[in-house]
Design a protein around this nucleic acid. Structure first.
Length: 480
RNA sequence: CGGGGUGUAGCUCAGCCAGGCAGAGCGCUUGGUUUGGGACCAAGAGGCCGGCAGUUCGAAUCUGCCCACCCCGACCA
């Protein structure tokens, strides 16, 4: 975009380029590696619709860190260190997270994990195995597909299937289980038609499909496009597709078709299907790979036995991945190794969404009354409340206590408003500072103040003279 | 862009179906009482009923067009 003086400006969705350029200017020698750079910065995304309070915004704050290593082993070490560091960060923030395998997108890289805060209001779906601890975003998740016993290929045979269009109808009509059928799904991949063939008991994982096709823009074809391509919705088949289709159509197959003999598939004409369709003998595909969607109840890809995956929802609070050399190669981010040879830096990138982290922390730490800040991230350690500040020396005592606490380096939110006790306590609960100190005429009679933790219902009386030191001790404990 | 919804007092909303004095609660102002868990009494202030046009004796209410916002979906290295 341009500013009022017609200068070029950028609203950056992410900052890999800026950081890689910085590296390029600053680092020439292997002696400077590994190098870690971090920042806390505003990012912009052209979201179609922001939603979820602080969860999904067009403008948001990210803390992100980039690592530069001399080789891939170095990247592995940096990555593992950051994975551990981020685990510690979320723990200290009072946010239980689980690191799950994630899709790294077209940019690629070999490993990628997201830190998920598990909550029913989360926008991401995660599959977990209770037995082995396998955890992955549904976009990424693998699963073990039902295995069919090997069979000799039988002869193709056309059967009449009047009015049958869905796998469910087909399965019932011919009395064959869904895993003995072949499903056809049509996509427009950056405008080009793609015929996806997958076993009838499975669904397409669009992220996997997009990656298989090389990061294209992917959507289902609409009825008009299906018609235009000459495909017969409900009875489409990869068998004889070249002849049936009006234009060339790429075929992508899920690898389940390799070991699934004698399936029931479409006949490329209405009201008819084919029995005994066999991959390779009857049809071929340009790409054969896993493009299937793992679901609740799918078999765990890591366990030997019959343990299944459970679906949970989560908020993505952090994301780490191995960028590799994508940026450093393109932008010439190199250094000289011990032998004086020019080498490309190997990069990793690690992000935490700061404002959505705030939302997640509050989601996890609240009650009917309001926020219960974990001490590590509370805006103030202490909420100092006066009741009837004009009576019994309350105002003066509170002023002294405030000054004493500040002196000791304790952060204090001081409520000296002339409001009723109910209002002031309710506000203190709502704002949720870890400690509340109440100075009132009643307490002054005992030369004491009331000390209450936000996360406990009981309170204790503390002599005025000891209040500041007691609080300072507690705050010190919080910081451990 | 598609689907749904909402615009009335500072805020949250009722009134619209079935046209006839512009309403409630909270908040605000003034006076008084109250003071350890969102007080009470009394008196007040506060409105282009989103905008424009139409129907009608009469429109917040019916009709058309427009604008804004919210929700769902599509999208999200």
């Amino acid at each position: 975009m341009k500013d009022r003086r017609d200068r070029e400006m950028v609203l950056a969705p992410t900052h890999e380029e800026a950081v890689t350029d910085l590296f390029k200017q600053q680092v020439q020698s292997y002696r400077n590696l590994p190098a870690l750079v971090y920042q806390i910065q505003t990012k912009f995304r052209n979201e179609l619709r922001s939603r979820g309070g602080l969860i999904r915004l067009r403008e948001f704050i990210m803390m992100d860190l980039y690592s530069f290593d001399a080789d891939w082993e170095g990247l592995d070490r940096s990555y593992d260190a950051m994975l551990q560091a981020y685990t510690n960060v979320f723990q200290r923030c009072g946010l239980p997270t689980v690191a799950v395998q994630a899709d790294s997108g077209p940019i690629g890289g070999k490993d990628s994990q997201e830190f998920m805060y598990l909550t029913d209001v989360g926008e991401d779906e995660i599959l977990l195995c209770d037995r082995c601890g396998y955890a992955a975003n549904t976009e990424k998740a693998d699963h073990r597909k039902l295995a069919l016993p090997p069979e000799e290929p039988l002869a193709l045979e056309e059967v009449a299937t009047p009015g049958i269009k869905t796998i469910e109808e087909l399965s019932r009509f011919l009395d064959v289980p869904p895993e003995r059928t072949l499903k056809a799904v049509f996509y427009a991949a950056s405008g080009e038609p793609v015929f996806v063939a997958i076993r009838g008991d499975l669904d397409v994982n669009e992220t996997k499909l997009r990656n298989a096709l090389g990061g294209v823009e992917l959507r289902l074809m609409d009825d008009r496009e299906v018609e235009a391509a000459g495909l017969v919705a409900g009875s489409a088949s990869p068998v004889g597709l070249e002849k049936a289709a009006k234009r060339p159509v790429r075929v992508v197959a899920d690898d389940s078709v390799r070991s699934s003999p004698n399936l029931v598939g479409g006949a490329n004409k209405p009201d008819a299907h084919l029995r005994n369709v066999n991959f390779e003998r009857d049809w071929q595909a340009g790409i054969v790979t896993d493009i299937s969607l793992a679901r609740e109840g799918s078999a765990c890809p890591q366990c030997d036995d019959a343990s299944t995956l459970t679906l949970r929802r989560g908020i993505e609070s952090g994301h780490v991945f191995k960028l590799g050399t994508v940026y450093s190669e393109k932008m010439g981010a190199t250094f000289l190794d011990q032998e004086g040879r020019q080498q490309v830096a190997v990069m990793g990138c690690y992000g935490i969404g700061v404002d959505r982290l705030l939302a997640a922390i509050i989601q996890e730490n609240h009650d009917e009354q309001g926020i219960i800040w974990p001490a590590s991230v509370a805006p103030y350690a202490v909420h100092l409340v006066t009741l009837s500040a004009d009576r019994g020396g309350v105002g003066e005592a509170a002023e002294r206590l405030y000054a004493e606490l500040v002196e000791r380096g304790v952060e204090v939110l001081y409520d000296d408003r002339e409001e009723s006790p109910g209002v002031k306590f309710a506000d203190a609960d709502l704002l949720g500072m870890p400690l509340r100190l109440t100075v009132s005429p009643r307490n002054m009679k005992e030369d004491s103040v009331e000390l209450k933790r936000r996360d406990e219902s009981d309170s204790t009386m503390v002599p005025l003279s000891e209040a500041a030191s007691r609080v300072a001790e507690l705050v010190a404990e919080f910081e451990e």
